[in-house]
Structures are given as C-alpha cells and as structure tokens.
C-alpha cells in the first residue's frame, strides 16, 4: 500500500485528514513542521506528501524545493492563500497540485488518488504512437476511441470525444466556440455556438477533479477554450 506524509501545523486538520485517508488503507506519517517533514522523507519511502504552506520553522515552499533536489514524490500543497501568484509559485518550485483551505475532503481524496495513480504508472507508460494523444494525465487513443485520465478510463459521448480530440491535437491553442462548432459539427455555426459551452462543461466534469478549477481543459474567457499545454 502507499505511504502518505501529512504535514500541517494544525493538529485538528492533521487528525481530520488521518480519518479521511485511513479509510482508504494508506500508511500515514505525521509532521507538524517542515523540518520534521524532511526528516521523515529522508527516513521512510513515501509515495505522496500533503504539505501545508504556512508553517513555523520551514514553510511548505522551502520544503518542496529541498525535496525536489533528490526526489520526484508527488507533493500536494495545502494552503489558506488563494491568490494566483501563490499557486504559480508553489507549482513552479515543483509541487504537483495545489488545494486551498478550506478544502472539500472528497475533492482532496480524488486529487490524492489521481497523483498516486500517475506516480505508480510513471515509467510503465507505453510510447505514444501516432494514434495516441497525451496531455498530462489525459490520454486519448484514436484507434480504440478510448480516453483515460491518470489511467482511469472515462466514458464520453461522440461530440465530447471529437471536441477533446480537436483540443488535444494542438495543446495550448485557443479555439473559439464558432471554430469548435464548425470543426466538430462541420456546419456553419449560425448562432448555435452556445451548445459548445454546454458540451465543454460536461467534458470538464468528466476529466477534471474540480470542474470549476480545471487543470487540463481551460476556459479562455472571451476568446474560447484550450487544452493546457505544460501539465
């Protein structure tokens, strides 16, 4: 089973996380500051670390930077800071995901599972052939017409599948609703673009853990939609 380190200076939050995670059968370690976290990380073989950002002694950003020098263990930052600049900083020093307090326990569990799946499958990933498209944990096989997210298969409708394929062909490129409509439905839009928004939302609900904070399928407001490039 997996070893997970919970690092937070608030004992109540650690206890709550333990209750949630122990139900899933993980082996849990606790640390109440950054120094302890580094100590445990050096001692135990860990598979995932939940790390608070604002802690005494050594904050989460510094711990992440230190851990990344030797290890590629998944790190999820937990923090009360919700500004975009804080998220960017956290992800840039090497964190894999970012969850703001107060968090939804179900969503946090989903993110933990997703990171563990990817971590466990790293290296065992088959080569992407001409018929395979991959963006981050999202994998689309155009031969078998299957889509997996972090290894878990997803059921899509044909329209959703075509939209996803279009966006994954050019990750980072922004397609407007009209373009998507014309390329997927293959007919002039003539005011039917609003259908695209609904399909995109459904697609996002299937491939994203938190649809309102998408990692892969992003809304570029006022311009269109895109598949995130560098995940």
């Amino acid at each position: 089973m997996y070893n997970i380190l919970i690092c937070d200076d608030d004992a109540d939050i650690r206890a709550a996380l333990k209750i949630y995670l122990s139900g899933e059968g993980y082996t849990l370690f606790e640390a109440e500051n950054g120094a302890q976290a580094l100590e445990i990380a050096a001692r135990e073989p860990l598979h995932l670390i939940l790390l608070d950002v604002m802690m005494p002694a050594m904050d989460g950003i510094a711990v992440t930077a230190r851990l990344r020098q030797t290890s590629n263990v998944p790190i999820i930052l937990l923090t009360a800071k919700s500004e975009d600049s804080d998220k960017v900083l956290g992800l840039n020093v090497g964190a894999d995901d970012y969850v703001t307090k107060p968090f939804n326990p179900v969503e946090l569990l989903a993110r933990i599972k997703s990171q563990l799946r990817r971590y466990a499958q790293l290296g065992g990933m088959p080569d992407a052939g001409g018929h395979r498209l991959q963006v981050g944990g999202v994998c689309l096989d155009d031969e078998t017409k299957t889509v997996t997210v972090d290894g878990a298969p997803i059921a899509l409708t044909p329209i959703e599948y075509n939209i996803l394929r279009l966006l994954m062909q050019n990750p980072g490129r922004v397609y407007s609703s009209t373009q998507i409509y014309e390329l997927v439905w293959n007919e002039p839009a003539l005011g039917s673009e609003s259908a695209v928004a609904v399909h995109i939302r459904h697609l996002r609900e299937k491939i994203e853990i938190d649809p309102s904070q998408p990692r892969y399928l992003k809304v570029v407001w006022g311009l269109g939609y895109k598949m995130e490039k560098g995940v």
Binding site: D142, T157, P158, I159, N186
Partner: peptide, 22 residues
C-alpha cells in the same frame, strides 16, 4: 491562421457518432 486539420486526425464531416467503449 484558422487551425488546419491534422492529417489522420481530422474530424470526418459526416462521421456518425462514434461508439465509445469504457
């Protein structure tokens, strides 16, 4: 430029809904 359809992955205009396996 308007996106060019990539060879082999272009959306077939008359493609029927594709049955998806889960």
């Amino acid at each position: 430029e308007p996106p060019e359809a990539t060879a082999g992955l272009s959306c077939s205009p008359d493609s029927a809904p594709i049955p998806l396996t889960t």
